Simulated scan of single mutants.
Amino acid sequence: MRIYLPASLDELDPASPPLSARRAHAVTPALRAMFPDEDDEGLEYAAQLAAADDSLVLLGERRDAPQLRCVVSADVADAAVLALSDDDDVPSAVELTRAVPQADVICAHVDEPAAATDVALAAGGDEAAAARLDERDLLWYDASELGSVPR
């Protein structure tokens, strides 16, 4: 199963331990039901955007981390993911129950460095900054490029 894991850039350093188990996002039956006319690519994008929002929450808790949204894409065994059934959760939310080794990371989607000010403000609760981030696309980096992502 492809998951979209909210992360911080410092978690992608080559010497970092595996990405810990946490809430992630995926194309779930609930997401498909919410967008019945959307194709797989559109559903994956919706899950990625939800993970980017969760990355802001993570960065709000980790002010020492580079203040850029980061979403890690990884393929994990279906058994490593539990569906969340809380009505308050977004329909793509899942619980990752196992750590993801760095070797299993496929790619990451990261803000460009110019977004850092808005990311820091949005992570602190600034709704105007969050709205500006909604207008920004995350940049794609292959797993082999993660050590050279601008910060």
Score class of each variant (00 low, 15 high):
residue 15 A to K: 09
residue 94 V to F: 12
residue 75 D to N: 13
residue 19 L to W: 10
residue 106 I to G: 11
residue 28 T to W: 13
residue 67 Q to G: 00
residue 48 Q to L: 15
residue 67 Q to L: 02
residue 80 A to C: 14
residue 148 S to M: 12
residue 137 D to M: 09
residue 83 A to F: 13
residue 5 L to I: 06
residue 79 A to N: 11
residue 22 R to F: 04
residue 27 V to Y: 11
residue 22 R to A: 11
residue 24 A to M: 07
residue 121 L to F: 11
residue 131 A to Y: 04
residue 122 A to D: 06
residue 107 C to N: 12
residue 48 Q to T: 08
residue 70 C to I: 01
residue 42 G to Y: 15
residue 56 L to Y: 03
residue 130 A to V: 04
residue 82 L to K: 12
residue 65 A to I: 02
residue 18 P to E: 03
residue 61 E to L: 08
residue 101 P to H: 05
residue 101 P to D: 06
residue 61 E to P: 02
residue 20 S to G: 10
residue 139 L to K: 04
residue 55 S to H: 00
residue 3 I to K: 09
residue 10 D to Y: 07
residue 58 L to A: 03
residue 53 D to T: 04
residue 20 S to T: 08
residue 87 D to A: 13
residue 142 D to R: 13
residue 17 P to T: 10
residue 130 A to R: 08
residue 126 D to K: 11
residue 31 L to N: 13
residue 89 D to V: 12
residue 151 R to H: 01
residue 1 M to T: 06
residue 32 R to L: 13
residue 68 L to F: 00
residue 42 G to K: 15
residue 56 L to G: 01
residue 33 A to K: 14
residue 93 A to W: 07
residue 4 Y to S: 02
residue 32 R to T: 15
residue 76 V to P: 07
residue 117 T to V: 15
residue 31 L to I: 12
residue 70 C to Y: 01
residue 125 G to V: 13
residue 61 E to G: 05
residue 86 D to M: 09
residue 83 A to M: 14
residue 14 P to L: 10
residue 127 E to L: 13
residue 18 P to D: 04
residue 75 D to C: 10
residue 79 A to V: 13
residue 86 D to H: 10
residue 51 A to K: 02
residue 134 D to Y: 01
residue 133 L to C: 00
residue 77 A to S: 12
residue 125 G to T: 12
residue 86 D to K: 10
residue 87 D to F: 09
residue 89 D to M: 15
residue 20 S to I: 05
residue 82 L to F: 13
residue 2 R to P: 03
residue 44 E to Q: 14
residue 149 V to P: 02
residue 62 R to I: 03
residue 26 A to R: 12
residue 98 R to S: 07
residue 36 P to I: 14
residue 120 A to P: 04
residue 105 V to M: 07
residue 116 A to M: 08
residue 32 R to V: 15
residue 112 E to M: 08
residue 39 D to T: 10
residue 94 V to Q: 09
residue 89 D to K: 15
residue 46 A to M: 15
residue 109 H to D: 03
residue 150 P to M: 06
residue 76 V to D: 10
residue 23 R to D: 08
residue 18 P to Q: 04
residue 79 A to F: 12
residue 40 D to L: 15
residue 112 E to I: 07
residue 75 D to I: 10
residue 98 R to G: 02
residue 26 A to K: 10
residue 50 A to D: 08
residue 52 A to Q: 00
residue 123 A to D: 02
residue 77 A to D: 14
residue 90 V to I: 07
residue 42 G to D: 14
residue 61 E to H: 05
residue 66 P to Y: 07
residue 112 E to Q: 11
residue 41 E to H: 13
residue 121 L to K: 14
residue 126 D to E: 14
residue 6 P to W: 03
residue 27 V to A: 14
residue 105 V to G: 08
residue 131 A to E: 11
residue 84 L to I: 14
residue 29 P to G: 13
residue 140 W to K: 00
residue 6 P to S: 02
residue 101 P to T: 03
residue 3 I to R: 09
residue 26 A to C: 11
residue 122 A to R: 05
residue 98 R to M: 06
